[in-house]
Structures are given as C-alpha cells and as structure tokens.
C-alpha cells in the first residue's frame, strides 16, 4: 500500500531528516513510533503528499506521489487518503453531519446518508449530528475527527498522535475504533505516535 525509498526532507535552513524505507502491504496496518522531534508529523505530511520530499520516492498504491502535479495530488489525496489530525480541524460554520457530508462531497461528489448515519451511530455521534462542531466535548471532537478520516472509505488512513490526550481506557477504545473502522472500510491504517501504549495493538512497527 505504501512504499518509500531513500526518503529525506529538509526544512528551509534546517537539518535534513532521513527516514527509513517503508513497505506496507495492502490492507495491513502500520505503527510508526518515535519520541517527539524526530520528524513524525513531517513523515506523515510527506506520505500524504502535503509536503514534497527533498529526495526519495513515495508510492501509495500504484501511484508515485512525486510524479503528480499539485492539483492531481489534491485530487488523489481527497479520494484515496483519510487523515486524522493531531489537532482537530473542522469547518466551524457547519454542523457535525454537515462536516461529514462535506468530506463525502470531495472529490467524488458522493452523498451517502446511510454511511453517515451508520458511522455516527458506531462512533456515538448520532445524538449530536445537528450540533455545531464548536459545541462538542473533547471526546466527541476526537470521534468526529476519526469519522472524518474514514467517512469516504479511503484506501489508506493516516492518524497523527490520535491518543496523546487520552487516559489508558480511552486510548485503547480509540485505537480499537480506528482499527475496527479501517477493517470495515478495508483501509490500511498508519498511526504515527510517541505513545508506547499503542504498541501492543500493531504487528507492523517502525521506530524512528
């Protein structure tokens, strides 16, 4: 599903970061673990095509990200990738269900109400689907964030520190949710974290 080779990235005026080569078969999950400051989020941005690498190649499925134009990259990311961000990002002027609907609309222009309801049900968001996102509790925001990463059934889901603010019990629940939803969508899940508690859930692990 994901394959990288000789990947490196340098921020302007910063040190060059080198990343180990990755190879993840389709449908399998991957945990990338490492302490703060080694470029975990940078790697996620590279893998999702939000940052162009300074060197090396990235393949997602059969597609070479480095060969795509900016617009093609936007389309590809929108259609095939889901991202669960470390900070929650929503459209604040829309309600919970509208945020989900918006995610479905681009770029395929789909509108699957059944899927929204089902996902809301499973993630415990059914009661607040017409609430503004600013009115949600932290836990609800976390779950909405997961929903937005998965609602469009992407081939691959990237999750950036999904458990960092959670207690042990919730940590397990959230990881399980992510895994379950990824199974249902037949998506590959790539979790990037410094959280050692997540380790026991994944067979494929890469340490940065």
């Amino acid at each position: 599903m994901v394959k990288t080779k000789n990947l490196a990235f340098a921020y302007e005026g910063g040190q060059k970061l080198f990343f180990p080569d990755l190879e993840l078969p389709a449908g399998e999950h991957l945990l990338i673990i490492g302490p703060s400051g080694v470029g975990k989020t940078t790697l996620l941005h590279l893998l999702s095509g939000l940052l162009p690498p300074s060197q090396g190649a990235i393949h997602v499925g059969e597609t070479a990200l480095t060969a795509l134009t900016r617009k093609e990259l936007d389309m590809f990311r929108g259609a095939h990738m889901g991202i669960v961000f470390q900070q929650y990002h929503f459209i604040k002027s829309l309600t919970v269900s509208e945020n989900m609907k918006l995610r479905q609309s681009y770029p395929q222009n789909a509108d699957d109400k059944q899927r929204r309801n089902l996902l809301s049900e499973r993630l415990g968001l059914a009661d607040c689907s017409s609430k503004k996102v600013t009115e949600l509790s932290q836990g609800q925001k976390q779950r909405l964030s997961i929903a937005l990463g998965l609602i469009h059934k992407p081939q691959i889901v990237f999750a950036d520190e999904p458990t960092s603010n959670l207690d042990d019990e919730n940590c397990d629940r959230v990881v399980q949710l992510l895994k379950d939803e990824a199974e249902i969508c037949k998506s590959s899940l790539v979790i990037i974290t410094h959280d050692q508690r997540v380790k026991s859930h994944f067979q494929n692990q890469v340490v940065l």
Partner: peptide, 14 residues
C-alpha cells in the same frame, strides 16, 4: 486558514 488547509486535504484545489 486552517479550514482552508483542511479543505485542501479533502481534495479541493486552490
């Protein structure tokens, strides 16, 4: 800005 960036990750073009 963040919402616009989010929309870009959803696949919306500039």
């Amino acid at each position: 800005r963040q919402e616009l960036a989010l929309l870009r990750t959803y696949g919306l073009s500039t």
